[in-house]
Design a protein around this nucleic acid. Structure first.
Length: 660
DNA sequence: AGCGAGCCGTAC
DNA sequence: GACGTACGGCTCGCTG
């Protein structure tokens, strides 16, 4: 038996929003619907019936099912009711079953409605349109009401029509970006929203029809694709993803704790500095925003007298001396980015829970073609931004150890993709690329008196290969560490290694590294000489795609593709993704009876945790055990994590040396 | 006014 | 069709 369910809710916050209806379907083992109905959360009898199914049926099906689990927890169900289920997510099925070259096509979209149109021939766009129209009507009324509320307190001046629209939209939709411009409205705005909450789907008339349609579409895709998982030999990847649902659910509910005062100080510093610089078109006196790329490009061309292809930061940098506008834009762009994306973004999501400010994310299980997770926590800037007035804006410093906890721990895999690539060279050749392997371990070396020596030359001690130096030396045979510009050449080698691993051609290397084509060719040839195994891997893929319709990654997720260029990276990136998924479950099993450990974040090759104040010996032992659980052994080299920790904030993390 | 494409900037 | 995988904000043109 299978239980398909969905929830319609009063919001999208995974910790505070509540479901008001639970449409569901019970499906038998032949994949036929035996019951389909809606439980209203304010009707205990209906909910009892649904919860009995939830208790009895071991396999749960949904579209983005993790979100609905959050809603059920917010409704108040016992965690034990959901922790041992099998989970089937429609998006995950799509990623495993749909031809991967279709998935990368521009016309392929992952939303339930689009998938239903494409694969079931069912178009529910009208229902969705009606739902959205009704909600948008209610929102417009609500917005007008807010303005009237301000007017009734004489807080809203008579603007002309255009100005009024702009202002009320700002105040209504973009408050967290502009509140410093309207201090007189803050208190009343809060009071208004408390008295008259924003309309939600709960206020829309056709929401039940709409919700049932979603369940039917989910059922249709489930029935179509579930049998394909076996036929397409995707069971390992399918199970691994299903088993990661609960660990990720817990990670999402932990979220990040925010140092709001620090964030607000940084906001002020940026606004103060931003006010000093403007981008003005000298011909018209018009002020331009950083987002007006087309107009800015034209202005840069006018000021620099050069023909430009785009208006991005590299272009601006190259004409900075000639163009005052480019100079101004170079300074403003980063402040704009930080304010809009990070500061306003976090303020919009800020949730107060038990006296702490938190932000939450959701990990999309089906966000990528390779199997990686994706989330909006994956792009917090690493490096601080230094303003001209000396302030340092360090975004990762806004995230702090929550109360009741003492540590953050970050276990990140070291050079994960290079190690995986090394393993691939072993798979296809029967032996790993020697240079890659020796970057990470004394491969084909002999231990003599505590020192490793190379087997082919026992007079030479092993030391880890410097992969980037190696490419540089092969590219420029006359240059080595003694050259005054060695750092520059090594940097070229490093960037070439990354680019070529992603499939770059000499032309792309030339453009990315800003070097002549001939130099780029030398660099690419340097790479090819340095890592013959990697070259063989690319060649193996090109041959393999024509002999068979899929290639499994190292963890047996299969990519049905003939695109050898993309497979070059998919097979590496996807292997890493699957290892991480598997490790999340392993660690979850270990910390289940250790509630002083909680998952906090995961980004592609790292897992972050929060830990309570426990005895140091116990802490050291458990950290070690988790590192061990996260280690992935392979033929020539292992994939192993570094360990960092912090007792304050994310950006202050330091190496963990096993003794505090 | 709502939507979506395109551009840009951030992460691994 | 040729450096991979993502997400979010902004602008602008299209649509009705």
């Amino acid at each position: 038996m299978y239980l398909i369910f969905d929830t319609e809710t009063d919001g999208l916050n995974i910790r505070t929003s509540k479901p008001f209806i639970v449409p569901y379907a019970v499906v038998d083992k032949n994949l036929n619907i035996v019951k389909i109905k809606i439980a209203h959360t304010n009707n205990d009898i209906e909910m009892q019936e649904f919860l009995q199914h939830l208790k009895d049926i071991p396999t749960i099906v949904g579209q983005n099912i993790k979100f609905d689990l959050h809603m059920m927890l917010n409704y108040g169900i016992d965690f034990n009711l959901i922790k041992d289920k099998n989970y089937i997510d429609i998006g995950v099925l799509a990623r495993l079953v749909v031809d991967h070259d279709v998935q990368t096509d521009k016309t392929f979209q992952m939303s339930l409605k689009k998938l239903a149109v494409r694969y079931l021939g069912v178009d529910s766009a009208n229902e969705e349109r009606q739902l959205k129209m009704e909600l948008s009507q209610l929102v417009m009324e609500h917005k007008a009401k807010m303005q009237q509320y301000f007017e009734s307190y004489n807080l809203w001046p008579k603007y002309n029509k255009t100005e009024n629209t702009k202002r009320i939209n700002e105040v209504y939709n973009n408050w967290n970006k502009v509140f410093h411009l309207y201090p007189q409205l803050a208190d009343k705005r809060r009071k208004f929203l408390k008295a008259y909450p924003e309309p939600t789907y709960a206020d829309v008339s056709n929401v039940e029809t709409y919700a049932l349609t979603d369940v039917k579409l989910t059922y249709g895709l489930f029935k179509l694709w579930y049998p394909e998982v076996v036929r397409k030999q995707q069971v390992p990847a399918f199970k691994r993803t299903s088993e990661a649902v609960i660990p990720l659910l817990l990670m999402e509910r932990q979220g990040f704790t925010v140092d709001v005062p620090r964030l607000m100080r940084d906001r002020k510093a940026i606004l103060r500095e931003w006010a000093k610089v403007k981008i003005i078109d000298p011909r018209t006196g018009e002020e331009l925003n950083i987002g007006q790329h087309a107009k800015l490009k034209e202005l840069y061309e006018y000021e620099s007298g050069m023909q430009l292809t785009c208006a991005d930061k590299d272009t601006r940098k190259s004409i900075e001396e000639k163009s005052p506008a480019a100079r101004a834009a170079n300074y403003i762009a980063k402040m704009e980015k930080y304010l809009s994306t990070y500061i306003t973004g976090i303020l919009n999501k800020l949730t107060e829970i038990d006296g702490e400010y938190k932000v939450f994310t959701q990990y999309n299980l089906a966000g990528t073609v390779t199997g990686r997770l994706s989330s909006d926590f994956q792009q917090f800037p690493r490096d601080p931004l230094e303003l001209r007035d000396g302030s340092l804006i360090d975004i990762r410093g806004w995230f702090i150890v929550p109360k009741d906890y003492k540590y953050m721990f970050f276990l990140d895999y070291s050079q994960m993709e290079l190690r995986l690539q090394c393993e691939w060279t072993n798979i296809i050749q029967g032996e790993p690329d020697l240079n890659l392997a020796r970057a990470f371990s004394p491969y084909q070396c002999s231990l003599i008196n505590g020192t490793y020596y190379l087997n082919e030359n026992l007079n030479e001690a092993w030391k880890p290969t410097d992969l980037h130096a190696l490419t540089a030396k092969h590219a420029f045979p006359n240059i080595d560490e003694s050259h005054p510009d060695w750092n520059h050449y090594r940097s070229l080698g490093k960037r070439t290694n990354f680019a070529v691993n992603y499939g770059a051609s000499p032309a792309a290397v030339a453009s990315a590294l800003n070097v002549p084509f001939k130099t780029a060719e030398d660099l690419v040839n340097g790479y090819r000489k340095a890592f013959p195994g990697a070259v063989a891997f690319a060649k193996w893929i090109r041959k393999r795609v024509w002999s068979i319709d899929n290639i499994p990654n190292l963890m047996f997720r299969r990519y049905y593709s003939r695109n050898s260029h993309q497979l070059l990276n998919w097979l590496v990136q996807g292997s890493g993704a699957d290892i991480l998924l598997e490790k999340l479950r392993k660690v979850y099993d270990y910390i289940q009876d250790k509630p002083h450990w909680q998952f906090m974040i995961s980004v592609h090759d790292e897992v972050g945790y929060v830990v309570k104040d426990i005895p140091q010996e116990q802490l050291a032992q458990e950290v070690k055990e988790i590192q061990k659980l996260m280690t992935h052994s392979m033929t020539a080299v292992d994939i192993i994590t570094d360990i960092e920790y912090s007792t304050t904030c994310w950006s202050d993390k330091k190496e963990w040396k096993n003794a505090l």
